[in-house]
Amino acid sequence: MTLNEIAAQMQRGLDKHPLAETIKFDCGTDGAITLEDGKALTEDRPAQCTIHISEKNLSKLIAGNLNPVAAFAMGKIKVSGDMTLAMKLGQLLG
C-alpha cells in the first residue's frame, strides 16, 4: 500500500469516528500522514502525538497483519508526544 492508499483508508475511519486531536505517522524518508481536523493528509505537520513507523509496517498495521502492541514492544513503532492519543487509533484502524 502507498501512503496515499493508507491515508484514504484512514480517512474512511475518520469519517466514522472523527478525531479531535492531531496525530502524525512519520514514515521517515517515505513521508508522513497527519490526521488533523477530520482529514488524513499526506503532509508532515506538527502533531500532539507522532508515531514513528516504516511505510511497510504501517501498511501491515492498516491491513491487520501487525499487532500494534507487539510492534511497539519489538521497537517497530515508536511514539513521541501524547501516548494516550496513540491508544485512540484502534477505532480508526478497526
Score class of each variant (00 low, 15 high):
residue 25 F to T: 01
residue 62 I to V: 13
residue 26 D to P: 13
residue 38 G to C: 11
residue 89 L to E: 03
residue 3 L to A: 08
residue 37 D to C: 10
residue 19 L to G: 01
residue 7 A to I: 00
residue 11 Q to V: 06
residue 16 K to P: 01
residue 37 D to G: 11
residue 25 F to L: 12
residue 73 A to D: 04
residue 88 K to V: 09
residue 71 A to E: 03
residue 93 L to S: 09
residue 55 E to W: 04
residue 8 A to N: 05
residue 81 G to S: 07
residue 9 Q to H: 08
residue 22 T to K: 09
residue 42 T to G: 12
residue 90 G to H: 06
residue 43 E to D: 11
residue 42 T to S: 12
residue 16 K to A: 15
residue 94 G to F: 02
residue 2 T to K: 07
residue 58 L to R: 11
residue 30 D to E: 15
residue 10 M to S: 05
residue 42 T to L: 05
residue 39 K to N: 12
residue 31 G to L: 13
residue 30 D to R: 07
residue 10 M to N: 05
residue 91 Q to M: 10
residue 93 L to K: 05
residue 1 M to P: 05
residue 3 L to W: 01
residue 38 G to H: 12
residue 65 N to H: 11
residue 20 A to I: 04
residue 5 E to S: 02
residue 71 A to W: 08
residue 92 L to N: 06
residue 50 T to R: 05
residue 29 T to P: 08
residue 13 G to A: 04
residue 92 L to C: 04
residue 17 H to C: 07
residue 13 G to H: 05
residue 1 M to A: 14
residue 77 I to A: 02
residue 42 T to H: 09
residue 20 A to Y: 01
residue 3 L to Q: 03
residue 12 R to Q: 12
residue 87 M to H: 10
residue 5 E to T: 07
residue 15 D to Y: 02
residue 67 N to K: 04
residue 93 L to A: 06
residue 33 I to Y: 09
residue 18 P to N: 03
residue 80 S to R: 09
residue 88 K to F: 05
residue 57 N to P: 10
residue 59 S to Y: 01
residue 13 G to S: 04
residue 31 G to S: 12
residue 26 D to R: 03
residue 30 D to W: 00
residue 90 G to E: 06
residue 2 T to H: 07
residue 12 R to L: 13
residue 69 V to W: 02
residue 51 I to P: 07
residue 81 G to E: 02
residue 49 C to Q: 07
residue 11 Q to D: 03
residue 22 T to W: 01
residue 51 I to E: 04
residue 92 L to R: 02
residue 88 K to G: 03
residue 77 I to L: 03
residue 78 K to A: 11
residue 94 G to D: 11
residue 23 I to M: 13
residue 94 G to P: 01
residue 86 A to E: 10
residue 28 G to R: 13
residue 72 F to M: 13
residue 56 K to N: 10
residue 29 T to G: 10
residue 14 L to S: 02
residue 67 N to Y: 03
residue 81 G to P: 12
residue 54 S to Q: 07
residue 2 T to F: 10
residue 89 L to P: 00
residue 47 A to L: 08
residue 20 A to F: 00
residue 62 I to K: 04
residue 69 V to Q: 14
residue 48 Q to C: 07
residue 29 T to Q: 15
residue 26 D to Q: 08
residue 36 E to D: 14
residue 50 T to L: 05
residue 78 K to S: 08
residue 8 A to K: 10
residue 70 A to I: 10
residue 67 N to R: 03
residue 77 I to Q: 03
residue 14 L to D: 02
residue 38 G to V: 13
residue 62 I to W: 05
residue 92 L to K: 03
residue 24 K to Q: 14
residue 36 E to G: 06
residue 27 C to D: 06
residue 12 R to P: 01
residue 21 E to C: 08
residue 63 A to E: 15
residue 67 N to V: 03
residue 32 A to N: 08
residue 30 D to M: 09
residue 94 G to L: 06
residue 47 A to P: 11
residue 45 R to K: 15
residue 55 E to R: 14
residue 39 K to A: 15
residue 76 K to M: 14
residue 57 N to H: 15
residue 74 M to F: 12
residue 17 H to N: 15
residue 92 L to P: 01
residue 46 P to R: 13
residue 23 I to A: 08
residue 7 A to M: 01
residue 85 L to C: 10
residue 28 G to P: 13
residue 25 F to M: 14
residue 80 S to I: 05
residue 41 L to C: 10
residue 59 S to C: 06
residue 59 S to Q: 04
